Simulated scan of single mutants.
Amino acid sequence: MSQAANAATSSSKRPYRKGNPLSDADKQRASVARKRATHKEVKVFLEPQLKELLMTMCQEDGLTQAEILARLIEREAQARNII
């Protein structure tokens, strides 16, 4: 019986962290709060066909919607000699 007791106490699991784990909603709120420190939020409504084009670009390039939009804005700004 002492071997069973030793096996239970000498496991290689991570030690218990005090406190309750965050809910998914709390994790998302924390993530958004971190992003707001360095980014600005943009809310956009697009026609369905434009949204599909955006999603296709995201899948083809393996990028997020924000990354694709940032690239498009930078490209347009360069074309207009803004940056």
Rank of each mutant, 00 (worst) to 15 (best):
I82G: 04
N6C: 05
I68Q: 02
K27Q: 08
K13H: 10
L72M: 15
G19Q: 03
E52V: 14
D61K: 15
R17H: 09
Q49Y: 12
A33I: 07
A70Q: 14
L22W: 04
F45E: 10
R34T: 06
Q3S: 12
T64S: 14
A66R: 03
Q49R: 15
E47W: 12
S11E: 06
D61T: 13
G19W: 01
S11W: 00
L53M: 11
N20R: 15
N6K: 15
E76L: 10
A30V: 05
Q65V: 12
E41W: 05
A25W: 04
A5N: 14
A5R: 15
Y16P: 06
R29L: 03
A79Y: 02
G62C: 01
A4F: 09
R29H: 04
K27F: 03
A70R: 15
A7T: 08
E76G: 07
A30D: 05
Y16D: 07
D24N: 15
G62P: 01
R14D: 03
Q28D: 05
L54E: 03
I82N: 08
K27D: 01
Q28I: 07
P48Q: 03
A33F: 00
R75N: 06
V32C: 00
K13V: 06
D26G: 05
K51F: 10
L72Y: 08
G62M: 00
T38Q: 09
Q78I: 08
P48V: 03
N20S: 12
A25S: 11
T56S: 11
R34Y: 00
Y16L: 11
R14S: 08
A5W: 10
E67D: 04
E74Q: 14
A37Q: 15
V44T: 14
I82K: 14
L54G: 01
E52D: 15
M57C: 07
L22Q: 13
S2I: 12
F45I: 13
L22C: 04
L46A: 03
D61P: 00
G19L: 02
K40Q: 11
H39C: 09
E60L: 13
E74N: 13
V42A: 11
R34W: 00
G62E: 01
R80D: 08
P48E: 04
Q59R: 13
Q3M: 10
L53V: 09
R29A: 07
R29Y: 01
R36M: 09
L63Q: 04
A25K: 13
A79L: 12
A77D: 07
S23A: 03
K27R: 15
K51R: 14
T56Y: 06
R71T: 02
E41C: 11
L22V: 06
K13L: 08
V32S: 07
I68T: 02
A7S: 12
R36W: 00
D24H: 13
T9Q: 13
F45M: 12
T64N: 04
K40D: 07
E76V: 10
P15R: 02
E67N: 03
M1R: 15
T56I: 07
T9A: 13
K40P: 00
D24R: 14
K40I: 07
R71Y: 06
H39I: 02
I82D: 11
R29T: 04
L50A: 09
E52W: 06
I68M: 01
E67H: 01
S23V: 01
D24F: 09
N6A: 11
A66L: 02
I83N: 09
K27Y: 03
L72S: 09
R71M: 05
K40T: 08
A5F: 11
R14E: 06
P15C: 03
N20Q: 14
T38R: 09
